[in-house]
Nucleic acid binder design. Structure first.
Lengths: 205, 205
DNA sequence: CGTGTTCCTGACCGTTTGGTCAAACTCTTT
DNA sequence: AAAGAGTTTGACCAAACGGTCAGGAACACG
């Protein structure tokens, strides 16, 4: 079983194939809605073979979430105290929007998990995620205190950025349904709008 | 069976109890994650009795979504061409935020459905919802054209309002996890922030 | 080549799930 | 009070599900 890191080439390949397949299936149907058979088929393996690599369905899910959470937070981590405040935050919005476009499955995976109460990653939310957000909130509050951006609540600013950007991944079906048949380039329009929104909101008078 | 509208008092009572129970269970676990036994228990009925009132699990879900969609769109419908543009839009944001606080289960029900591809309400999204949004988009675009608000894409403005407000219902666990132990009054803070955000974004120079 | 380890599979199992059904109970109506 | 419609239930079913297991196939290595 793959408790630690994969050791052989076959383990590496199959482990990756399983996580890729699990991302596809879990993000589309949620934890409960996904089945081991679906994941196995998507990974090109038999069900017992799946369970040779991962002890259980839940183990796959946990491994997947753990492997992705770090990358998911990279854009926020990159928020730089030395840069221009407005440009830093708008840049963060753009990076987050780009992730929603390039990695919608990852976004939906987290959305599914959190909407249903985050039973499997609540500790990571209250731990590493909260720590990171707290840290960046201090930074943003500092910018506001120094008069370099408008005085806004840093936590709700971050929440709004998450909400507006991830919306294009999580609610993709709705967005397309309303914009259709026009708007195939709706990510570009979203970037324009969000850039305007946050520049205006953060500008100092 | 309750194909049409309920006729007897018992039917009225049980129908309502079932929809209330279904809202509770579906919103917390998603369609696939919810079981008929759970719903039946929450409604105080036996499982076969549930199926006396609704033909199937899916029928309950569809009935629930249909019954709620109208109320869900009321705040947007109330957007009034005769009012002050900025106040109308900010008022819409506040009403939507208040719904997220007062009706989080309804919000999560829709979130669950749409994240997983909206298999059961895609037609309503492309139909009545799109029609309503198109109509309000014309109104907002008119305001922008007349220079009464800043020139913004009305569709992405509406998307951002949905995203930022529903975020507090759909991602409630995450919000609380990050704000804890402080911030029990986080809806008031959210209102302040969003009011600032949209006033700034829409103000004319 | 042989041998031990890793990898893979078909058959199987217990449980849960959505759904059925005949029979019984209850309420309303005359 | 009797009939008939409306309501409820326990027992049951087939399918799907997560997971197990004994053994066989493929591979690495001396």
């Amino acid at each position: 079983m793959a408790a630690g890191k994969p050791r052989t080439r076959i383990q590496q390949k199959n482990n990756a194939a399983i996580l890729e397949a699990a991302l596809e299936v879990f993000s589309a149907h949620g934890f409960r809605g996904a089945t081991l058979d679906q994941i196995a088929r998507a990974a090109g393996l038999s069900k017992p073979n799946l369970l040779y690599y991962f002890a259980s369905k839940e183990a796959i899910h946990v491994a997947l979430l753990g492997a992705l959470l770090d990358n998911w937070l990279d854009p926020l981590r990159a928020l730089d105290a030395r840069g221009d405040p407005v440009e830093e935050i708008v840049g963060y919005v753009m990076r987050k929007l780009d992730m929603a476009r390039a990695m919608p499955r990852e976004s939906r995976l987290f959305a599914n998990e959190i909407v249903q109460g985050a039973p499997r990653i609540l500790d990571k939310i209250k731990g590493p995620l909260k720590t990171l957000v707290d840290e960046k909130a201090v930074l943003i509050r500092g910018w506001a205190g120094a008069g370099r951006i408008a005085a806004v609540d840093p936590y709700h600013l971050i929440f709004s950025i998450w909400a507006t950007t991830q919306h294009y991944a999580d609610f993709d079906v709705q967005v397309r349904g309303i914009l259709a048949p026009a708007g195939e380039a709706h990510f570009a329009d979203a970037a324009t709008f969000l850039s305007h929104l946050y520049r205006r909101a953060l500008a100092t008078p």
